[in-house]
Write a protein that binds this DNA or RNA. Structure first.
Lengths: 343, 343
DNA sequence: AAATATTTTTGAACCGGTTCAATATACAAA
DNA sequence: TTTGTATATTGAACCGGTTCAAAAATATTT
């Protein structure tokens, strides 16, 4: 038995479709007795008006935009989302968030669902791994569905708002060098994603611009969670040869940095006296931790705001408009986890 | 000038609607030359097929559910969302998250948007403050829109999945008493929301079941963020009279507890030697902090899973089914922030 | 009781797409 | 040239609601 329609209700109640519609929409032209009767039929039939058909005619359906994140429990995205939401709400749009959980398939389904509904446009943190799948993005372009990427995707020209990770990572390492550090390593994050990759490259960059010698062993493959920093840190510092003991660690993000610091505390290695540490993101915990974490602050809310701004400009444009690319600047927040050897 | 429709495209391209539709849907029955021509018209007209009409006929629109949280940047909700998502995905539903930002108005708009689209049902963390507004919830009930609340709302009978905060808070205090503590205070969270209120009540409860004397001054109004714990902690412990110095603090949640610990470290007050602390939620940081936080663990993922389970059961039910209420048990995780005076 | 005003209800067109049987066109074989 | 077949295109019905002018039912006035 299929889902009941307004016609079913009308027939069973012995009234016209128009009357049922009036009841549904709380029109006050309906006689109370008819109203109650129709309502009771609605209940027994378990009728549920189908939104799609409703929106077809009549009132402009509510304006909304979507945001596809890569994972739900990552504070990075929620911070960006806050920025998106603020801007969107100010412009009269509501925001729907969905997560691809790092799956191309999900990303495609979600973009399709957004596009198919009354969601007017989407901000996408694209899944990037070994095999690129960008058909769905092309398909969005084909039908002029407005979208903004939070990371460059090879092979597709689209609006992009991102952070200048390369420059930021380079500067972090330079700062360490200025402070007199020489044996510097990097606890790296996901290497396929461009932000992870850029940070590694920035790390390498700084070496080539200095007199330090780069070497693959200076990249320690870690991950992106607290646990990763903790466990990798424990293992790395437990097995490191005394003559290879690093003077400083640049971490993929703050959470990893905090995890690493927890591990070092357990190993009784003092920060910053024995090892200096730099994080990335400037999450709330970073400044309250003891010692307060020196970290590269990415303007997450700004990022979201900018993306929303471009998206909505595209949604409201009558004609096709030029594609925009923005790379926001990240800034080093100097706190207490880097030792200055010049002093 | 209004948004172009498929008819506009068809006319301008000199073909029928059916052909345009075929192009849109990548049907391989279209001659490449027509295809390209239509596509070019689509581009110049900036045509965007309207999903609502598409879903009306043909393929069943994708299954999805919604989750309305109270705030985006609260790890509590993202943890619950992870549980919701896992269950939903396993059942073939995608999840959309939206935030009411603690506004009744937004909550109403969002429920309406969910209901009006092809989102089959919603899990709602209801906004609860002084003035109750539940018209939209009634409206959902009226049209049999399936939904599950994450907190009891006075005046409405609906599916509810929540945590037994009262019992948990009571047990936390009892544990402190067993450990020999007597002067115990509570850093409280939002008092209108039932979970905040229940924790306060649980705190009070434990007193009445013991020989301790309850007193309004034992409740310190704090908040729910790290910053709140830090600042309230700083102020409170700075101004407290020596004879009123508490032996233990039960915090509204973990983040507040960590903030408080950061403040105490700054004041050189030792935890747990001078003050014992209990948190609430068991977030990831709790177990890695030093000292590791003793806290009441709420099964957040479980909570989400249970809510999703009930929701989907309701969505897939052919006829009206009974309303369910569940209160999940929270558990005390004993770590290092409570001093046992019996030892 | 008739005329008029008001409240309710309805029929039919409409929204913007999809679908598919039927038709038109192109292309190869007889 | 005619016939057969594969390929392209289309007309018209349809999806499940909304809308509104017009008709029907009630209520009020004269």
């Amino acid at each position: 038995m299929k889902r009941p329609t307004i016609t079913d209700v009308a027939e069973k109640a012995g009234v016209s479709k128009a009357t049922v519609s009036a009841v549904i929409n709380d029109r006050d032209t309906v006689k109370p007795s008819t109203r109650d009767h129709v309502l009771s039929i609605i209940k027994t039939l378990n009728f549920q008006p189908k939104g799609q058909a409703r929106g077809l005619r009549g009132r402009t359906s509510g304006r909304s935009i979507g945001f596809i994140v890569r994972e739900l429990d990552n504070p990075f995205y929620t911070a960006v989302a806050v920025g998106v939401k603020k801007y969107a709400n100010a412009k009269g749009y509501t925001l729907f968030i969905a997560s691809s959980e790092r799956s191309h398939g999900n990303e495609e389904i979600l973009t399709r669902q957004f596009a198919a509904q009354e969601v007017k446009g989407a901000i996408i943190a694209p899944v990037i791994d070994g095999n690129t799948e960008i058909d769905h993005l092309f398909s969005l372009k084909k039908f002029n569905y407005p979208f903004v990427l939070l990371e460059e995707v090879a092979g597709i020209r689209a609006n992009v708002v991102s952070v200048d990770n390369l420059r930021a990572a380079t500067e972090a390492v330079k700062y360490l060098i200025e402070c007199g550090h020489s044996r510097i390593v990097h606890f790296s994050g996901p290497e396929f994603a461009s932000h992870g990759f850029e940070r590694i490259n920035g790390f390498r960059n700084a070496f080539s611009e200095s007199q330090l010698v780069y070497n693959e062993n200076l990249i320690i493959h870690c991950g992106s969670h607290f646990k990763d920093g903790f466990e990798t840190g424990l293992e790395y510092f437990n097995n490191i040869l005394p003559d290879q003991f690093p003077m400083a660690v640049v971490c993929y993000n703050d959470v990893v940095a905090l995890g690493l610091m927890a591990a070092l505390r357990k190993l009784a290695v003092k920060v910053p006296d024995q090892v200096s540490i730099i994080g990335y993101d400037d999450i709330e915990f970073a400044r309250y931790w003891s010692p307060a974490l020196t970290t590269i602050g990415t303007p997450l809310e700004e990022l979201g705001k900018k993306a929303a701004e471009i998206l909505i400009r595209n949604i409201e444009a009558k004609t096709a408009i030029t594609i925009e690319t923005h790379a926001l600047k990240a800034m080093l927040h100097i706190r207490e986890t880097v030792l200055d050897l010049n002093k």
